[in-house]
Design a protein around this nucleic acid. Structure first.
Length: 135
DNA sequence: GCCAACGTTGGC
DNA sequence: GCCAACGTTGGC
């Protein structure tokens, strides 16, 4: 099982929206590197929901419920999308500021490459964020 | 195929 | 609201 982080602007689609919907197709990822990561996602993988914009924090955990499929919104047919469902909201949001303040995260794409919207999460960092999110 | 110009994203 | 970083586009 691999672990990932997906970014979304909560005014576009929030974690609460996902909890309400029960499941959603994570589509509309256009960036080439983000697509490369997305194609490597597998059913059963876990994903952090990171809210951009005003929130700027990891706020929830999701589960991938199906392997990547062609993104129905993409006319080129090259992009993929994955289906996710919510697992739980973190007790405490893990803010970008808190992540940046800890040098263990210094090499992570979340810190180094602000515009990347899909990225892997190394095991050690996943455990650390989960611990920080438990409050 | 290169690169300048332009557009977009996301943090501040 | 601004701007840095980065991606994309289009002219050559």
């Amino acid at each position: 099982m691999a672990t990932w982080l997906f970014k979304e602007e909560p005014e576009t689609y929030s974690f609460a929206d996902l909890q309400r919907d029960g499941t959603t197709l994570w589509s509309g990822v256009a960036n080439a590197l983000a697509q490369k990561h997305l194609r490597a996602v597998k059913k059963g993988d876990r994903v952090f929901f990171y809210a951009t914009g005003k929130v700027k924090a990891v706020i929830g955990v999701m589960l991938v419920t199906a392997d990547p499929v062609p993104d129905p919104a993409d006319e080129s047919g090259k992009c993929v999308a994955v289906t996710v469902k919510p697992v739980r909201a973190l007790a405490v949001p893990v803010t970008l500021a808190a992540i940046k303040a800890d040098k263990a995260f210094a090499q992570w794409e979340l810190v180094k490459q602000a515009r990347l919207s899909v990225m892997p999460v190394p095991d050690a960092l996943w455990a650390k964020v989960e611990k920080m999110g438990n409050g």
